[in-house]
């Protein structure tokens, strides 16, 4: 049973991240996802210190707030003349450092340890269950991630056209009267939400693996956004199942194995993709030469 809950949690994390990651990749903002997943740490720590519990709505709000602060600061320094890569680097390392300091200062009072923050403890999800009226409804993490996934699916499917257009051609979108900045911040808000609901199970740093790797693999396999989203989610789910199996076999970190499995799938797509793979490109080149 525990294996089922772990794989389900992993699959939910992977689905949330895989959907949002597609848009990040298309907007060339892969590293903003990295920055947000680090920058939510102080939000998590502050919410945790104030509420004292691990599964509060405060944590979600606190983290989302810091995700926004990070995006806002990055934009501010960039418009102030700092190169965009340096601006990302300065902001997320500073916020992550604040989070680490807050957690280390209060290490005695709270049971939120740094290892968990870094690479998660998905193996423990089944111990903290949601009970309503005495009925055991399954792990809290599953409910939180399920809720996040529903929100992501709702927002993306309601505004699919807008998200698509702002990702591919922001200038056209702006000319058509779509509020580009609003959708930018909406996407960032969703990424923050996904980061914080996943952090307990896969950790702040490995979230970024699931945000970038499955969509990148899908990007090599298709040229259409719809199939890209589907393939990306499939890659994410397959990596969470394969990762769990590998982790059991190796007796190692489950979240780490999940990201490694995603990496293997990406490597396969990179080499073997029928259209954009390394071998296909090489064959096309030798055919052109002949």
């Amino acid at each position: 049973m525990s294996g089922f809950w772990i794989v389900l949690t992993g699959a939910l994390v992977a689905s949330c991240c895989a959907i949002l990651g597609c848009f990040l990749i298309l907007r060339r903002m892969a590293l903003i996802g990295d920055a947000i997943s680090h920058a939510v740490l102080p939000g998590i720590a502050i919410a945790f210190l104030m509420s004292g519990t691990r599964d509060s709505i405060f944590m979600l709000l606190g983290a989302a707030a810091f995700g926004f602060i990070a995006v806002f600061l990055i934009e501010m320094f960039r418009s102030g003349g700092v190169q965009s890569d340096a601006s990302i680097g300065v902001v997320f390392t500073a916020l992550f450092a604040v989070g680490v300091v807050l957690i280390s200062l209060n290490a005695r009072n709270i049971d939120l340890d740094l290892d968990c923050v870094l690479f998660g403890e998905i193996a423990y999800v089944q111990w903290s269950t949601l009970e309503i009226g005495g009925a055991d409804l399954g792990p809290k993490a599953v409910w939180l991630l399920g809720f996040t996934l529903v929100v992501i699916l709702l927002v993306i499917s309601l505004f699919y056209k807008q998200f698509k257009l702002t990702s591919f051609d922001p200038a056209l979108a702006a000319a058509l009267g779509i509020p580009v900045a609003l959708f930018h911040y909406a996407l960032m808000g969703l990424v923050s939400m996904a980061s914080v609901s996943s952090f307990e199970s896969v950790g702040a740093i490995l979230v970024v693996g699931l945000l970038i790797i499955p969509p990148a693999a899908a990007y090599l396999l298709t040229d259409r956004l719809g199939p890209m989203l589907v393939i990306s989610v499939a890659v994410g789910i397959v990596s969470s199942i394969a990762g769990y199996a590998a982790a059991v076999a190796l007796d190692a970190s489950i979240a780490g194995c999940m990201v490694c499995a995603a990496g293997v799938l990406f490597a396969a797509a990179f080499l073997l993709s029928p259209k954009h793979g390394l071998l296909a490109l090489r064959r096309a080149r030798s055919r052109a030469a002949a």
């Binding site: 990295d34 490995l206 693996g209 982790a247 190796l250 780490g256 194995c257 999940m258 990201v259």
Partner: peptide, 14 residues
């Protein structure tokens, strides 16, 4: 960069 960073870090964690 994101792919390499997270895969290497994940291997390290494993």
């Amino acid at each position: 960069m994101g792919i390499v960073l997270s895969v290497f870090f994940a291997i390290g964690i494993v």
